[in-house]
Design a binder for these strands. Structure first.
Lengths: 224, 224
DNA sequence: GAGATTATGTCAGCTCCTGACATTCGGCAA
DNA sequence: TTGCCGAATGTCAGGAGCTGACATAATCTC
């Protein structure tokens, strides 16, 4: 699942790894998949770590060697998506303004995800179901928000590098990253509040609409 | 402690309450104070709920009747401050633009806090120490961020009401609230990353500086 | 194939948190 | 004052998340 989202640039490196590492990757993937299946099936709170471990035929202790806590396995897919977004941002042309680059990156990221090869158990629809669950589970939402804010720091660093600025001196990169995060979270919230979950297309549209309101919202007078 | 932050408008109501409610308030305050003292003294992770309860001579079960979890008691002061901010925002004149009102509210909020009567165990310095601890404790930071985003929804509702808009139709209130939250979080982060914690004045200055960068950050070209 | 390294299992234990039930305390009226 | 009702608290048992310590088994290296 992680491999599907890695950019082709880093993929062909595909150095030959031993049996040990392959096995580790397989159990990790199995844990993530089993966890997601159980979470969506019977809810996050009503699924114990023992159940997940048992489903993969692994001891509970081993589970905690792969994931620091129960939250982490639920956010694993999101983590991959975030990494992919960072790659998208890295690939934007230098000519774009920071805001343009961020907006284009997130839209491109969702489009690529939507048109991913197979939409199986690890496809977009599963990811969107996960997102819905995260939004509905307080403890997961909290952990997710913390991850998001950490990513904003990475984004700020990238923006600073793009423009050749020192992030310790110029506040614009961090402010821009925080604003971007806010707009995105607002769009996500609107998406999860929809009566019927529209697919990735609906998500993209909501993101666009929220970005469109950024300028008007900051304008001095809203009555126009 | 909560009483110090309530706005004068609601304070004089001070309806006569029975011994029962007064007692409850006292134990709650005692729990918050003991918890904060222990947290700052030996860290959040190294303080057990049993210790806190024992410090107030109360059973562990009673603690959990006052606070849903260990995080909540740590964020209690922040919750009060957030409520006070909401009051500040409510009090802003209708002539101000949404952005102006938000910025003025948060600055005013901090100023009032700084010039609070006594800066004792529940004063600003203690609150700032708590903020530092929250920022340094992953689980607390996560819980705090979730609270913040909930407050943003409240702020969005207030902005919509100010401007007579339907938040279900017009996206500007929510986008504005999210952007505001982002800028604020960015400022908090910068504050907590400072080598030496400047007092509330330092916090206010950082907030102002971050707000000042909002326009420039969104500008198309950063090289100017 | 032997030894070093690494992953896993087992076990004991702490801490957070909850439900159920008994007990005590404050409010209120006869 | 007395006595009753409801609310707050204590006690107990237990589940679930998470960790350290140690033993065992699998993989890697030579």
């Amino acid at each position: 699942m992680a491999a599907q989202l890695t950019t082709p640039a880093t993929d062909p490196a595909a150095r030959v790894v031993g049996l040990r590492e392959r096995k580790k990757q397989r159990t990790r993937d199995a844990l993530v998949e089993a966890a997601h299946r159980l979470f969506l099936q019977q809810g996050f709170g009503h699924t114990t770590v023992d159940e997940i471990a048992a489903a993969v035929d692994v001891s509970q202790r081993t589970f905690f060697r792969y994931f620091a806590n129960k939250d982490e396995v639920a956010l694993a897919v999101m983590a991959d998506a975030e990494d992919y977004f960072i790659e998208c941002l890295r690939g934007r042309p230098a000519g774009e303004s920071p805001l343009q680059a961020l907006r284009a990156s997130i839209v491109q990221c969702w489009r690529d995800l939507a048109s991913s090869r197979h939409d199986g158990p690890s496809g977009v629809t599963a990811a969107l179901e996960l997102m819905q669950m995260i939004e509905d589970t307080p403890t997961l939402l909290a952990a997710h928000l913390r991850r998001i804010t950490e990513q904003e720091q990475v984004v700020a660093g990238l923006l600073a590098a793009r423009e050749g600025l020192d992030p310790a001196v110029d506040l614009r990169p961090k402010v821009m990253a925080a604003v971007f995060g806010g707009v995105l979270r607002s769009a996500h919230l609107a998406w999860s509040a929809q009566p019927e979950d529209s697919g990735p297309d609906g998500m993209i549209e909501l993101i666009e609409r929220h970005f469109d309101q950024l300028g008007p919202a900051l304008a001095g007078d809203w009555r126009s």
